[in-house]
């Protein structure tokens, strides 16, 4: 359930929604963090649901002590009216028995809010790639039929690679081809639901392994930026993404000085 924090509820008609799938390496979530932090998007509401494990903390995008004392919850919506962009950041795993219910909730919210397109940032286990996927770029995309007309040409122009369907039974060449996104959390389910319900959804994903996934997040968000042009690319050097305060100490606290 979307609960606004503004006096007047925001209108998302005609907006693009970006949301992460809680997937391997949390890459989608990290990439969404980069977008919210770099564009300085204000929070407009919470996504309050029993499908996610509860979690609370202070403002993850704080830039000074003044704006640090803002309570943030497990799922929040950020919006940029100028860019017609909204980001639903998810910070907690989905409760295992409520995955289906969560997908339904997301799809119905997308429909009722009137988003023109939704982009799901995701990842998949690198070690489960098949032979054809091992070569070249680790980035893949998927478009639901509702988005194919609008975005199909554009992503082909960018020379993006579509996520391959793999054989249900490897080695048997004429066996059924199916979508396989291991470690992708709700990715496959949400994509299938959106195809069925005629929702315009694009999945942008990266093959990766657990570990320091910050480089994967940058790769994914740069890839997305080629399409959506969220942040202007400078003539030289990389896009200046702003790393949020919450990324500090990803690998734990300081080292005890006594060990040296």
């Amino acid at each position: 359930m979307f609960v606004t924090t503004e006096d007047t509820p925001p209108c998302f008609r005609g907006y693009t929604l970006v949301l992460p799938a809680v997937s391997v390496g949390n890459v989608g979530q990290l990439a969404a963090d980069l977008i919210v932090s770099t564009l300085g998007m204000p929070r407009v509401g919470h996504f309050h649901t029993d499908c996610l494990v509860p979690m609370a903390g202070n403002n993850p995008y704080a830039t000074s002590d003044q704006d640090a004392a803002v309570l943030s919850t497990n799922a929040e919506v950020y919006s940029s009216p100028d860019m017609k962009l909204a980001v639903l950041q998810i910070r907690a795993p989905v409760v295992q028995t409520k995955v289906k219910q969560f997908r339904r909730l997301i799809v119905s919210w997308i429909k009722s809010s009137g988003f023109t397109r939704t982009i799901l940032l995701s990842s998949s286990h690198a070690y489960q790639r098949d032979d054809q996927q091992l070569l070249g770029s680790p980035l893949r995309y998927l478009l639901s039929p509702a988005l194919q007309n609008e975005a199909g040409e554009r992503v082909k122009g960018l020379q993006w690679q579509e996520m391959e369907r793999v054989c249900a039974f490897p080695g048997i060449s004429d066996s059924e081809q199916r979508l396989h996104i291991p470690g992708g959390g709700i990715t496959k389910g949400l994509y299938t639901d959106c195809c069925k319900e005629d929702v315009a959804l694009a999945v942008v994903l990266i093959f990766c392994s657990e570990g320091d996934n910050i480089p994967d997040a940058f790769a994914l968000v740069n890839h997305l930026n080629n399409w959506l042009q969220l942040v202007a690319k400078p003539d030289q050097g990389p896009v200046p993404w702003r790393v949020p305060a919450s990324w500090r100490l990803l690998f734990g606290s300081g080292i005890p000085p006594a060990i040296f």
């Binding site: 809680v22 997937s23 391997v24 390496g25 949390n26 795993p93 989905v94 295992q96 995955v99 990842s123 396989h180 996104i181 291991p182 470690g183 992708g184 959390g185 709700i186 496959k188 389910g189 299938t192 657990e210 570990g211």
Partner: peptide, 13 residues
């Protein structure tokens, strides 16, 4: 390391 993804394997329908 345990996986930070919801599930090791793809969630089957």
């Amino acid at each position: 390391v345990y996986s930070r993804a919801v599930d090791e394997d793809e969630q089957e329908e």
